[in-house]
Design a binder for these strands. Structure first.
Length: 257
DNA sequence: ATGTCGGTGTCTCACCGA
């Protein structure tokens, strides 16, 4: 079974690209981020036409996350993290799908650092970690997937020395990511490709994709039992080269049935 | 500092956030 995560950067503006990729890749379960659409403008009918059911947590203009499934119904267990002091930002959606618990997330960008946005990012990360610990304690098979807005290590950045002060790579956020995975989560893509240079995002500016000046910020984290079923992972990076495409590429894992 | 996107309102340009 294939599970993917894709920051679409506007689900309606990128709809032709999203549909083209879904038809080509046919993942069983998909987490989407940056819908940039209110709930009433989510393109459910176009996805249904490709046999994908969907649940979504939208917001006007910004953020927004969704879960798609072509392997049975989506039972939403949570919209937003527990104890969220700012529920106006739609960044977390959790659902039971086909025997798995899926947490779809869009972690705050956090720039500029320092500042209130960076403080919000760290606070959001702390609430995610607290909830993730509770999830692990259930013993369920769980996937946390999305745009974490964190490059975990130097090898996840085309030029790490240039990103030391950025909110996506600052010591505090790398430490937060490391502390999260230390709970017992497996970074699926890195686990499958320990030494490879793998990126999931290339800025629109300065021909970043053409220069392969990328970042690895989209991740799928697996609970312990699921990590044992991991048989493959990768990035559909050719999608980043399509017309009217997102600045992110889809990221996927394959799990043994 | 620069550059490029989608979404939105101030609405066919100018902004915000990324």
């Amino acid at each position: 079974m294939r599970i993917a995560t894709y920051n679409v950067n506007g689900v309606n503006g990128r709809l032709p690209v999203l549909l083209r990729w879904l038809e080509e890749a046919r993942p069983e379960i998909v987490c989407l981020q940056e819908l940039k659409a209110p709930d009433e403008k989510f393109p459910a009918a176009a996805l249904e036409a490709l046999d994908y059911q969907a649940s979504w947590h939208g917001q006007k203009s910004w953020n927004g996350v969704a879960i798609l499934s072509r392997v049975g119904s989506i039972h939403v267990t949570r919209r937003g993290l527990p104890d969220d002091p700012d529920p106006s930002q739609s960044r977390y959606l959790e659902a039971a799908v086909n025997g798995l618990l899926i947490g779809a997330l869009y972690l705050p960008n956090g720039n500029p650092r320092p500042g209130p946005k960076f403080a919000y990012k760290l606070a959001w990360f702390e609430r995610l970690a607290a909830h993730a610990a509770d999830l692990l304690a259930t013993g369920l098979p769980i996937v946390l997937a999305g745009d974490f807005n964190v490059m975990p290590t130097d090898r996840d950045v085309y030029r790490p020395e240039r990103w030391q002060e950025d909110a996506l790579f600052a010591p505090e956020v790398r430490a937060a990511f490391a502390a999260l995975t230390a709970q017992g989560w497996t970074d699926a893509v890195r686990h499958c490709h320990p030494d490879a240079t793998i990126y999931t995002f290339w800025d629109y500016l300065r021909n970043a994709f053409g220069r392969d000046a990328g970042l690895r910020i989209d991740h799928l984290l697996l609970s312990r039992d699921l990590a044992g079923k991991l048989i493959g992972a990768g990035v559909d990076r050719h999608v980043r080269g399509w017309e009217k495409t997102s600045d992110h590429a889809p990221v996927w894992i394959d799990l043994a049935e």
